[in-house]
């Protein structure tokens, strides 16, 4: 596929991801995107929902992109910076496809629901059938669209499955208020809105390449 084609495809994936995250964001909210990259998600939310966009980003290039989009972004290590953010100071804190790259995902999760009245977390599901097949049949660590790099160079060091994530939320007394599971083509596999029991079956789990959760602390 041409570079351009790839970019277009990424654009489509992005938009679907953004759309789903956007469902959990209110008009005019103060939104903090942790690991905001070039600020595309915040820009999308700013244009579509008039949110006030804030970010934390590790790369100076990303920071520059964000600034030229008119966003407010702090240059630094997300896990270190978020420690200094004030409790409940944002309506929504977003962690998009970054949880698995954290040194301490549990601490990050704690900070997300501490700083945000609500948090939206998306991550690649390590229980997806391609991952399972790769491990079971090929005996190799998986390389897929959402996990595109080989094990020795991937920034992703803490993979989890949808069930792992839900279990951790339970353990940390974090309430799950919404969940969307998407397959490889970004088609919907499962949707939960408004809390309650999970209802995620074995088959849902296998088919989900990516999960998006809306959560908040009970404190």
């Amino acid at each position: 596929m041409s570079e351009e084609g790839k970019r277009d495809l990424e654009g489509v994936y992005d938009r679907r991801d953004f759309e789903e995250i956007g469902r959990f964001v209110g008009e005019g909210d103060r939104v903090l995107d942790v690991g905001c990259g070039d600020g595309r998600l915040l820009s999308y939310l700013q244009e579509g929902k008039g949110v006030k966009g804030f970010g934390i980003e590790l790369s100076l290039e990303g920071v520059g992109e964000c600034l030229s989009r008119g966003l407010s972004v702090i240059h630094g290590d997300a896990e270190e910076e978020i420690e200094h953010y004030v409790e409940g100071s944002y309506d929504v804190v977003v962690l998009s496809l970054t949880l698995q790259a954290m040194r301490k995902p549990r601490d990050m999760l704690y900070n997300l629901v501490r700083v945000g009245k609500k948090a939206v977390v998306s991550f690649p599901n390590f229980g997806h059938w391609r991952v399972v097949r790769s491990l079971l049949w090929d005996g190799h660590m998986p390389v897929t669209r959402v996990m595109p790099r080989a094990w020795y160079e991937t920034p992703n060091i803490h993979f989890c499955t949808v069930r792992d994530f839900m279990a951790l939320c339970g353990e940390m007394d974090i309430e799950i208020t919404g969940m969307v599971l998407l397959d490889e083509g970004m088609g919907e596999v499962f949707r939960l809105s408004g809390g309650g029991g999970s209802g995620v079956s074995f088959w849902h789990h296998l088919r989900s390449a990516q999960a998006i959760f809306a959560i908040h602390g009970r404190g």
Binding site: R30, L60, V63, S72, G76, H84, Y85, V86, S89
Partner: peptide, 14 residues
């Protein structure tokens, strides 16, 4: 500034 809810950005230049 962030704690005060301001629109603040920060950059560290190597």
């Amino acid at each position: 500034l962030a704690a005060g809810g301001c629109f603040v950005s920060g950059a560290l230049i190597e």
